[in-house]
Design a binder for these strands. Structure first.
Lengths: 242, 242
DNA sequence: CCTTTTATAGTCGTGCTGACTATAAAAGGG
DNA sequence: CCCTTTTATAGTCAGCACGACTATAAAAGG
């Protein structure tokens, strides 16, 4: 093997490279995560994040999107939000071999039941926080992913990725409340969202009966803006981690 | 090889795993990057980011800190800011073999001349943006790192990582202006920094003559706060990328 | 001594935000 | 059919952070 820049002095050893997916959705006002139940040791019977090996001709992003399609059973995952989280490489994180995992976060609108694919390892939606300790270091990965999503909600328009094509402002607000775990003032939330150009755009004459009771709410679509200026900060939690 | 969760159906191929470092410092009001000049093909004669292989018993973070110590020649890099940026894994990014690189960003106060170590590949400080096209995909990595640092300046106290143990508010402001490439209003910057608890703390009776002319400036030390609430936003650039 | 330079103090208006009140439009129960 | 409940939407008001700006203090140089 020829030398690389600054790499000259070290032999290199092979690693297995995998992707792990933290896939979130909001379902009936609760944050859900896509998990698979392990059949073999180690961690047999425990829940784990879906994932798989990166193939020789793939980037980690490509592998992640492929896995996302396989695990959710969705035919078209091209429009879904998928974002690299970080890479986990502690030597002991898999007891069997040296495996470096590139973790990704994905956001889905309230999703089909997933467990309909022909795969052996069948992924299921599990309410966030209820799946006991996960296998490997997946608790940490999942917590990192959750924190990242919450932080990005503050200064991006990412929340619409959790919503169906048309949604009410109440639904969008519930997405924020579910991810942040806090309550928001409705008039203020509404004012802020509507004042941000490109966050949402009104669907002209449409309205949706909100489950029967109450005044019908106007429908909106996701806008074209990606960033949120100024940010929409979550209710005061003083020292938020960087 | 035994099966993993959801990994069962794929054989895994070995990858080389490396770390790449985007090391920044502010030197005489200019942002500098630590680079190495390549001696061999491919990209012989081009500048590249310092980096190296991850050893079998190391995490990527450990490897990055080891490389940082080797390339800068500093004896103690334990207190320096080092943070994972993201992982680059495009199949063609190194023409010789399949290598997945975990990129890191490091921030140093105005640094010693670095090129004093006993290493063969000697790293040098180069003004940001002046090193022509870099080797491999290092231009992209460096641009991502710069954008990340600029973004983190808005909502963290990271800027003090560029400063020596004791510094003036003018120096801190210049760090901001150098990284952001914009000018800031001095009284407003001062008001904001001092109003943020834990950002900086005054050194009781100390003052520094500012290169000779003008009123001596009070000295400050980095405080204990990590986050910046509310954030210190860079001058209006409308749609900032997420 | 006066000018230049840089640090520091203070002022003023605008705009965003949190807290709150008020009105409109639906369903349900008597 | 009226009245209550529920939810959406409109509007008010005070506080505060921020941008733009002016003023003063303390050093060096001529």
């Amino acid at each position: 093997m020829s030398a690389m820049n600054g790499y000259d002095k070290y032999a290199h050893e092979p690693f297995a490279v995998t992707v792990d997916l933290a896939v979130f959705t909001v379902r009936e006002g609760t944050l859900h995560v896509l998990l698979v139940e392990r059949g073999q040791e180690p961690y047999a019977g425990r829940w784990a994040l879906p994932g798989g090996f990166v193939q020789p001709d793939e980037s980690a992003e490509t592998a992640a999107r492929r896995e996302l399609a396989e695990e959710t059973g969705l035919s078209d995952v091209s429009g879904l939000h998928l974002e690299q989280l970080r890479t986990y490489s502690e030597p002991g994180r898999d007891p069997r071999m040296r495996v470096v995992s590139v973790a990704f976060t994905a956001l889905l609108p309230d999703a089909p039941e997933a467990h309909g694919g022909s795969d052996a390892a069948q992924a299921r939606w599990v309410p966030y926080g209820t799946a006991g300790p996960l296998a490997f270091d997946h608790d940490r990965i999942l917590a990192d992913a959750h924190e990242r999503v919450g932080a990005k909600f503050e200064y991006t328009c990412l929340a619409t990725a959790f919503c169906p094509p048309e949604f009410t402002l109440g639904e969008l607000q519930q997405v924020y409340e579910t991810v942040w775990g806090t309550e928001l003032d409705r008039p203020n939330f509404r004012r802020k969202v509507l004042a941000t150009p490109g966050f949402v755009e009104a669907v002209p004459g449409a309205a949706r009966l909100t489950g029967g009771r109450g005044k019908p709410a106007a429908l909106y679509r996701a806008g074209t803006a990606a960033a949120l200026h100024p940010p929409l900060l979550r209710p005061t939690r003083e020292g938020r981690p960087a």
